[in-house]
Amino acid sequence: MTTSAGAQTQAAPAGGQPQEQAPQKMTIAKALNAGMRRAMEADPKVVLLGEDIGKLGGVFRITEGLQKDFGEDRVLDTPLAESGIMGTAVGLALRGYRPVVEIQFDGFVYPAFDQIVSQVAKMHYRSLGHLKLPMVIRIPYGGGIGAVEHHSESNEAYFAHTAGLRVVTAATAEDAYWMMQQAIASDDPVVFYEPKRRYHERGEILLGERAPYGLHDAVVRTQGTDVTLLAYGPMVKTAMIAAQAAETEGRSVEVIDLRSLSPLDVPTILQSVEKTGRAVVVHEAQTYLGMGSELAALIQQEAFYHLEAPVIRVGGYNIPYPPSRHEEVFLPDLDRILDAVDRSLAY
């Protein structure tokens, strides 16, 4: 961890040479930090707001060192009030700033829900295009960390449901680094979901000048021919492990990392499903009216004659997020995904 500061500096060359040849190994947490750092260096209008993001660097240390390097004027420790954070970020954006807001945990975004849905999402529309709100709302989400209530939720569907917002999530360090910069550069508000249980997993990043993918591209993580697994955020890794396990049983599973929940990369999804004829959607969120519902509807509508089996959803049960002693069975895991793959292939 002590060398990471150097890595961050290299991640954000201030007009320096990109280091195409030397991929860096970095955790998702550090990659998010490096992405924000680089965006802040590139644009003085980028400001960070949130609770405990200054000296502490956030409860997950995602903003570690940024206040020290960019000053209290650009990394603001706010009062503890999420609507206040969101509403003042709207005002800053109206004044020409690009606020990056940290919501401390998924379950703490609800006090800001009104500002996000009524103001952030609708300001551009309401103003007939005169006003823009180039904001990023960062939300660490998902379970699997043994936390108390309100710290493990996957509430992405609320925001993906809301027109005017873009909703993305990173599953790898490389995506964390690049998608953060792309989200900050977006002139539309972006809700950026961070898979908190994967924060400390490492991945390789090519610190070039160009992002490998667009912000709203889905990416095929594992090629396969028998069934398509659609996953995002913390479930991508689980899905990839499931694909490996299936392979040992002679089943070829294609894993697609959706990356963007609004908009969806429809062509990439359909291309895969048309090839495999089968789709299983995996997410931590409760399935009822979740992303899986939308994906199932999309696939049956657009790829009906290619389907060999109904689209199957694997997700959280439709109960409140349970006490953490249950989360091992509440959250989709390898076995539940493989079970769904089996059921799909049984048709």
Partner: peptide
């Protein structure tokens, strides 16, 4: 809004108080 420095009407009661505060923080910056 920017032609006359008069923001659009806000219908949800109170939302605009925070927008004004944030805008004023931007003025400070």
């Amino acid at each position: 809004s920017n032609e006359n420095n008069f923001h659009l009407y806000t219908i949800v009661i109170g939302n605009q108080m925070l927008h004004a505060t944030g805008y004023a923080m931007g003025v400070q910056k």
